[in-house]
Computed example of a mutant assay.
Amino acid sequence: MVENCSWEAHATNRNKVCPGAGEALELYSRGFLTMEQISTLPPPAIVNYLFLLLCLCGLVGNGLVLWLFGFCIKRTPFSVYFLHLAGADVGYLSSKAVLSALSTGAFLGAPAAYLRAVCRLAGLCTFVAGVSLLPAVSTERCLAVLLPSWYWRRRPKRLSAVACTLLWALALLVTGTHRYFCGAPGRAGCRRMDAALGALLFLALCPLMVLPCLALVLRVECRSRRRQRSAKLTHVVLAVVAVFLVSSIYLGIDWFLFWGFHIPAPFPEYVTDLCICINSGAKPVVYFLAGRDKSQRLWEPLRVVFQRALRDGAELGEAGGGTANTVAVEMQCPPGNAA
């Protein structure tokens, strides 16, 4: 018998329903992003089509970011983080699109079940990687703004690449451990693993991304004399973190109520997944809005817009004598591949 069973909603009464052994396995095998729901009914069919639409739009936007940041814009310490963020978002949106397509087509059988398991595993890994990258980029940006002279002189040249590699390794380790405890029948400790995963996301990584952003707001936004110098990339970092916090609030409420007060998650799984899809697809829009020039009446190439959004971060190395220690953002796309 499973404790803290889900609630089945009816028009006249509400009965507490404890799932059987097979149902409990399916309930917990989906992992942290589901937990226990008030209603075990499947989402409406329109939700799957909405997921497909959001995922396709997000894949197009993040695919452009991968192409431009990877091949068309010369690397800077911050563009490396945005490149890996786009890769994590592409991975999550791809896995969610496949799951939605399988649900829309009502595919059954062993191949479909195996594909669902792989997509859930890949989705969890890329989600954890994306969340882990946000504290890194916000912390680096905070150091670059608050201590520019020290930061650009002491910063290791390949710090961004090394940090991203370690964070991806952390995501793989967390996902593998989660799979070990929650992926097979009779495995004990799945609930503890879900609780530890939630603590990592909301009690460790969220404060690590919020505190540097608060320091950025106090230092940059409250001093109008320095706004024009370093505002664009700072606004990008603040907006990306804000979008994540707003979109993950439902997931945080689910986790807090379930593990703090043993209350079944009040939001259906598709509501929290919908918010995460919006978060993954919104980053290219943030880059575009931050980099566009309002005085330009004609449409600008996307590589120019993204270049403008990243330029402030590259030019912060002027501390102490006006020498730019960082690499200037340059266009490397051949004329035929201009975005």
Rank of each mutant, 00 (worst) to 15 (best):
M1K: 11
E3T: 12
C5M: 11
S6N: 12
C18Y: 08
G20F: 00
E23P: 06
A24L: 07
L27C: 09
Y28R: 14
F32P: 03
T34S: 10
I46G: 07
Y49A: 15
F51I: 12
L54I: 14
L56N: 05
F69R: 07
G70L: 06
G70F: 10
S79W: 00
V80Q: 00
F82W: 06
H84M: 08
L85A: 03
A86G: 08
G91T: 01
L93D: 01
L93V: 00
A101R: 07
T104L: 13
F107S: 03
A113Y: 00
L115P: 01
A117L: 10
L121D: 04
S138T: 09
P148L: 01
W150C: 05
Y151Q: 05
S160T: 03
A161N: 12
L167R: 10
A171Y: 00
R179I: 07
C182I: 09
P185F: 08
R191I: 04
M193V: 12
D194M: 15
L201D: 03
L203Y: 08
A204R: 10
C213G: 07
L218E: 13
L218Y: 07
R219N: 13
Q228E: 09
Q228L: 09
A231R: 14
V246T: 13
G252E: 15
F267Q: 14
V271N: 06
C275K: 01
G291S: 10
R292H: 07
Q296R: 13
R303K: 14
A309W: 02
L310K: 06
R311W: 01
E315Y: 05
M331A: 13
C333L: 07
